[in-house]
């Protein structure tokens, strides 16, 4: 294992994040605050409570998930796409580095960053609402797994993307709608009849529900289903990564 190389990639990516500190960390704080103002104060004042939790607090897990998922995908995909775009990928290919080491470096850095964003949003939320996290261990585990699996997913998109449009299209057309429709801002029990069933096909529902359970002890779907969903998603991403590694897809001719 070329640990120096993993470290080099990880540090290189983290330096890149810190170079764009304002954009990286300030924007999630700002957008979270805006969500609280708009959803929490304006709309929340008309909604009493959901499952015994004030609306302002109820949306916190969903807000964190929204940012963590989109940030993981965009950071990890950009991280590996950019060297391909500007040509510096030659270095990765000609260095004594295995594909696994490249994945650990890039995905590890992207996951670290989105983890910190998640924590920052959580801290910001504390200024607006009272939060009493019931299962901190599970909360942490869900957060870490989501950061990792969505960073893996982002890495795959970055490898696949042939141009900037393709790089944006999956986060924009798939991730964002799934997250917004995945119960970030509402409980799926609030949906009318048939939509409650349809929404169960949205994998993000399970992740948000599980994460919310770790906060308030209530969930839309059984916690075991949430655990299975996140594990299955991670497994699928790992399988695709393994396939890319085997075939050299879009990396090495």
């Amino acid at each position: 294992m070329n640990l120096q190389a993993i470290k080099a990639i990880y540090v290189h990516e983290m330096v890149r994040f810190f170079r764009t500190l304002m954009q990286s960390f300030l924007s999630p704080v700002l957008s979270t605050s805006l969500y609280f103002v708009v959803f929490g104060a304006a709309i929340g004042s008309r909604i009493d409570q959901i499952e015994g939790v004030s609306y302002g607090a109820f949306i916190v897990p969903g807000l964190i998930m929204l940012s963590v998922m989109t940030q993981s995908v965009s950071n990890a995909s950009f991280g590996i796409y950019f060297p391909k775009f500007i040509g510096t990928v030659y270095e990765l290919l000609s260095a004594p580095v295995s594909f696994l080491e490249i994945v650990i470096g890039y995905v590890g850095a992207a996951a670290t960053k989105s983890f910190f964003i998640g924590v920052i949003i959580l801290v910001t939320a504390h200024f607006f609402v009272d939060l009493d996290i019931q299962h901190p261990g599970a909360m942490l585990a869900f957060l870490v797994l989501t950061c990792l699996s969505f960073s893996l997913f982002g890495f795959i998109i970055g490898i696949w993307a042939g141009n900037f449009e393709q790089l944006q299209i999956i986060p924009l057309l798939i991730i964002t709608p799934l997250v917004f429709l995945g119960g970030s801002f509402y409980s799926i029990t609030m949906l009318p009849g048939i939509w409650q069933t349809i929404t169960l096909f949205n994998p993000v529902v399970y992740l948000i529900s599980g994460f919310r359970w770790s906060f308030f002890g209530t969930a839309d779907v059984p916690i075991i289903a949430s655990l299975l969903a996140i594990s299955a998603f991670t497994a699928i991403c790992l399988a695709i990564i393994w396939w890319i590694f085997r075939t050299g897809y879009k990396i090495r001719s």
């Binding site: 190389a5 470290k7 080099a8 290189h12 890149r16 500007i86 040509g87 270095e91």
Partner: peptide, 27 residues
Amino acid sequence: LVPQEIALEPFETVWNSVSFTRGLFGK
């Protein structure tokens, strides 16, 4: 390897860029 096309990450410093390569090669 010194490639034919100039390929450098534009916002990275010279020092970091050179250190990065050294790290990639396991040193």
